[in-house]
């Protein structure tokens, strides 16, 4: 492990330091969810696991997709595919702010040299039926994280409350390393035999996906898939809990939630394709929210989501 007080040399070193740090704080270091999501919050390790009374502590990197943010790899700060680092701890520990500040120190931010501020920012996800209170964290005027105490998810009160930290990894890493354009950021150690920059890995995909998101994706197919995901989600939740084959009580909350995630991403793509009008927008968001709520209802009936 690198000395925490030195400046990291690469994007991946920042990720590795965060992983090590949060592992040391007792978090289960999970892997990204294997589906397209708009933010780390969508990972069932956050949405579903923030429900019920079972204690929970997890940290993970989540690749996130925001189709409308595609800029063909040209914008120094904006990407349609980027990484979030997500920490979720239930119940929120009393020293969560200190733990968070420790993580900044771990990636080389000298707290005696920088101006760290917790600035009011209430978080709300209309598609997940979720909201919480907290801050955006500023480092020298730059927003580097979201810090949220979940109050409600999927329409359910969070009892106990989970503390959620979300780091925008590219932005944070660029700031720590003093990089001006994301594509210029070293991804691995610049002294490696084969040094790779962020752009070596993602410039081409940013171009391809920007074209795909804005012009390529078939809107007819997306509309149909949205309907399919919606129907499948409801169908899976309509099963009787008793599974005749295994003889167990099995509620398919996670598979149904996968369909919610799908619907949400399909909506984002349709939005990027510009085929959703202002009035329809609200209706689509409402449809995804309805699915998220049903999944949350179902998860609350399972062992992992129950009140003990």
């Amino acid at each position: 492990m690198s000395d925490a007080t030195t400046t990291p040399k690469s994007f991946q070193e920042i990720i590795l330091r965060l992983q090590t740090y949060w592992a040391a704080q007792g978090c289960a270091v999970l892997q990204p969810y294997d589906m397209e999501v708009g933010a780390g919050t969508f990972h069932p390790a956050t949405t579903l696991r923030s429900l019920g009374t079972k204690p929970w502590a997890a940290a993970y990197v989540q690749p996130s997709r925001r189709p409308t943010d595609g800029r063909y790899g040209e914008n120094p700060n904006r990407l349609q595919h980027y990484y979030q680092y997500q920490v979720i701890i239930k119940p929120s520990p009393p020293n969560l702010q200190d733990l968070y500040l420790g993580s900044l120190a771990a990636i080389g931010i000298d707290l005696g040299l920088h101006d760290i501020r917790f600035v009011e920012d209430d978080w709300e996800s209309p598609t997940l039926g979720a909201w919480g209170l907290g801050w955006e964290v500023w480092c020298d005027g730059m927003e580097v994280s979201q810090f949220t105490y979940f109050q409600q998810v999927g329409g359910h009160d969070c009892k106990p409350v989970s503390g959620e930290l979300t780091y925008g990894l590219e932005r944070l890493a660029m700031y720590v390393m003093g990089i001006d354009h994301v594509m210029e950021m070293p991804f691995n150690d610049p002294d490696s035999p084969i040094p790779l920059k962020y752009g070596d890995i993602f410039r081409q995909t940013e171009e391809e996906y920007s074209r795909h998101n804005f012009d390529g994706a078939s809107t007819g197919m997306l509309l149909q898939h949205f309907k399919d995901a919606e129907a499948e989600c409801e169908r899976l939740l309509a099963f009787e809990p008793e599974d005749p084959k295994s003889g167990k009580r099995i509620i398919m909350a996670h598979p149904a939630y996968d369909q919610t995630i799908k619907a949400s991403h399909l909506f984002n793509l349709l939005d990027a394709r510009g085929v959703i009008s202002v009035t329809e927008r609200q209706a689509y968001i409402g449809r995804v929210r309805a699915l998220a709520k049903k999944c949350a209802d179902a998860f609350r009936l399972t062992e992992a989501g129950a009140d003990l």
Binding site: L113, H114, D115, R117, D140, Y175
Partner: peptide
Amino acid sequence: VTVANIEAADGGEVILKGNQKVLAA
């Protein structure tokens, strides 16, 4: 004029530079 919440060891040079960078973006 930005108002920091700390007397930094370097007299605020790093803080100002950071703020200037955000402003430029």
